[in-house]
Write a protein that binds this DNA or RNA. Structure first.
Lengths: 214, 214
DNA sequence: CTAACCAAACTGACCGGTCAGTTCAAATAA
DNA sequence: TTATTTGAACTGACCGGTCAGTTTGGTTAG
């Protein structure tokens, strides 16, 4: 195996390395998102990143590990945005916070469509090479959604016959699919239309138009 | 290229051929759904079907064409079920018909999880080998959903600010994702929970609890 | 009845090419 | 000095597609 840089010492790593890793993330996100992990070669990724093949193995050790870290990278970005959207509305109407989060999700899908494609392509495989990675990352994202749903349920009367978990999954899934479909098949649809369609789930969950904190 | 059987003469083809094609559909649906189209070899498919590799090429001409016909095959089954669920409730409450359809979709996902995985894995790739196939099949399925939504909109007051297309896409996507998630991560969730979560979209779309044909 | 015949269906060894992963000496930054 | 990158060569496994030959089931001729 090639000599890897100290894996845990991200902070100590020189800027050059981080720049290289970023270039590799960008290049592989694009290629893998479009054509699928199995249909992209390491040589292609290296070339697209303007880097040699050896550098890929020096930095990541394997193609599989590169992809695992790519997934983690993308989720970190998405999570940060969702939390930011929620925090920005702290103390306000939880339904508006939810709407802001879904809007952020749509923006993310528009900005990183390849990440979304990679996610849906590999997420439900069994057993996947990245099963553990997906399990953890999926949990983190659902946690963010769960918090937002919880806030809504605390402020509004909701339909308790609907299972929280299933509801969160439906929102999660609808975000990915609506976002991806807009990219692929219906570019004419607006961000707001997409958000409104997904928000229908929440309007169906909340029982009546009671005022928040009612 | 190997000599293919007359493509249009399905009726004339001996039973042996149709049996072979069915075995190949079953085997490849399973393998490709689990591991992805690119990670399954034609040899494996042939072996799993209890048939030689040459037979695959005799019947389908290429791996790509096998998968295209596999997609068509699965959609035919799903469409038939959805239409059946809708027809079975003809003249009744369109919301109940919708609920029946979503229930059928859940059943389908449970029975053919591999098809659902194949679909989400390859659907949003650009450009995909099966782009044309997906475009057509996606349109057919959305058409069925659109009809059901139309019936609801005709019988109930609905939120016209929500774009029909986006709504249908959200339902479509939620069905796949909720169904797959149940298979992969949450087998303890019941069919009814899943249906209820997806139906929240419709309850959010309908304005009040007006009686049908109001 | 049955032997000869035929085309469709099927077989599986084989070929040409591809790719992930490895290695390493030389170059280049910090 | 030391960490990082380069570039090119190499390997060994794997895979899609091909093709010459075999089996099967039915039809026809004698």
């Amino acid at each position: 195996m090639t000599t890897e840089p100290q894996a845990g010492a991200k902070a100590l790593r020189p800027a050059r390395t981080n720049a290289t890793r970023q270039k590799l993330f960008d290049a592989s996100m694009e290629l893998i998102g479009e054509r699928g992990a199995a249909n992209v070669t390491v040589d292609e990724i290296a070339a697209a990143a303007g880097v040699s093949k050896g550098t890929v193995y020096y930095n990541f050790g394997s193609k599989s590990e590169l992809i695992a870290q790519l997934l983690r990278h993308g989720v970190d970005i998405l999570k940060a945005r969702l939390l930011d959207a929620a925090d920005g509305r702290d103390g306000r109407d939880p339904l508006l916070a939810m709407e802001a989060m879904i809007g952020q999700a749509m923006d993310f899908m528009a900005e990183y469509p390849s990440f979304a494609r990679l996610w849906v392509s590999e997420n439900w495989r069994i057993p996947s090479e990245w099963q553990g990675t997906f399990s953890v990352l999926r949990g983190e994202l659902l946690e963010v959604i769960a918090q937002a749903v919880e806030s809504v349920a605390a402020a509004y009367p909701v339909d308790d016959s609907v299972s929280r978990g299933s509801l969160e999954t439906a929102i999660f899934g609808a975000c990915f699919v609506v976002g991806l479909d807009r990219q692929t098949y219906n570019p004419e649809r607006t961000r707001d239309q997409s958000v409104a369609a997904i928000m229908a789930i929440m309007r169906g969950y909340v029982l009546k138009e009671a005022a928040p904190r009612g």
